[in-house]
Design a protein around this nucleic acid. Structure first.
Lengths: 201, 201
DNA sequence: CAGGCATGTCAACGCTTGTTGGCCTACAGT
DNA sequence: ACTGTAGGCCAACAAGCGTTGACATGCCTG
């Protein structure tokens, strides 16, 4: 929490220290390891080795392993623009956007790490709750007529999209892995569309 | 794998040893710990303490921590009878059955443990793949006209149902936790129904 | 009653983990 | 050119892990 690192977006005039490259290397290695192994198996030593630095540097820059995790999974889902999407295209738009997130290398690492850690480590679950509340919920609020129903609808959408990521990218169920991108869109878009626009049952 | 424990259903005449109570206590404690903490944080020592025995007993009865996990997550989803369900009631039947699984204390523990461990530990992911292939897929095959489409449809259903379990029981997204049982059925049944019976897109 | 096997305890092992403090190096400001 | 400081490495720590083997206890069979 008292990380020596400057917040990526807070300080307007970044001091541009000499150690920025090292810090970035640590963060990249950490994301990869957390995504591949989860919180406990992603050891500080392994991350340090990947980044070709000493484990002590991790502590110097991020205070602790938890601090490193918090810094590594700062993510922006870029879900701002649902208000000017045609109502009957909402489902498809959301699914396509979501699949797009997993194709960006950086985001893919962050999201997989979040999914893996969120399931095992309390801090990870809290982080996912925060992202849901701060990014997913507001976006759904833009697209839904009755604000009171937005949380439930957002949760249903999250359950389907995270469930897909889970079976396809983490558990690697073979049929889920085989699905083509367009197939996924065609199957899931109506589901999300219904969760967004159908009358509450 | 060479666990001293008798397979629960293999030997027809169970010897009924004196240590069965201990073994059961260990298994129960293990399921609880694996479900609550995941594979790595569920230590053999903690499980032994919960079961009020010595950690060495775990090794004696189950060979290793991995052996204990394998024995603890032996699960039967009881999904055999989809062939005589009316076609247009399939979705609702599946969702209701799935929600019922989570209300049995034993199954709830096993399933949560599987979900938590499957995400972090390779052995857990393999186990979930096995269960999917051996239990979910055959059941879906009974309910679907074209067998070639069954795997993809089964994977989609698994993604939605596991996604719900994930957001509700593991990540504990607040709106997902708040959903009533009937609401879940009403929202998810049409989704599952479509994944089962809708024409492939 | 004696022996043997199942049951259980205890203490210790080797290893890995996160974390710490001391020390070296090299660049920047005067 | 000299010095302060930021960047980086090394060795070590205490704690916790899974696992092991030797030893105690009690039950059942002969």
């Amino acid at each position: 929490m008292d990380a020596t690192a400057p917040p990526p977006s807070a300080a307007p005039a970044a001091p541009a220290r000499r150690s920025d490259a090292t810090r970035a290397a640590i963060l990249a290695a950490a994301r990869e390891r957390f995504a591949a192994d989860g919180y406990d198996r992603a050891t500080v030593r392994a991350i340090a080795q990947d980044a070709r630095i000493d484990p002590a540097m991790v502590m110097r820059y991020f205070g602790s392993k938890e601090g490193l995790f918090a810094a590594a999974v700062d993510v922006d889902l870029r879900l701002a623009d649902l208000s000017d999407v045609p109502t009957d295209a909402l489902g498809r738009t959301v699914v396509v956007h979501f699949l797009g997130l997993w194709e960006d290398d950086h985001l893919r690492g962050v999201l997989t790490a979040l999914l893996r850690v969120g399931v095992t480590h309390p801090a990870g679950a809290v982080r996912m709750q925060e992202i849901f509340a701060a990014q997913v919920l507001p976006a759904v609020l833009q697209a839904v007529p009755d604000p009171a129903q937005a949380p439930a609808r957002a949760a249903l959408i999250a359950s389907q999209l995270l469930g897909l990521a889970l079976t396809r990218l983490v558990l690697r169920f073979e049929p889920a892995v085989r699905l083509e991108r367009e197939e996924i869109v065609d199957w899931l878009a109506p589901t999300v569309q219904r969760y967004l626009t159908a009358e509450a049952p």
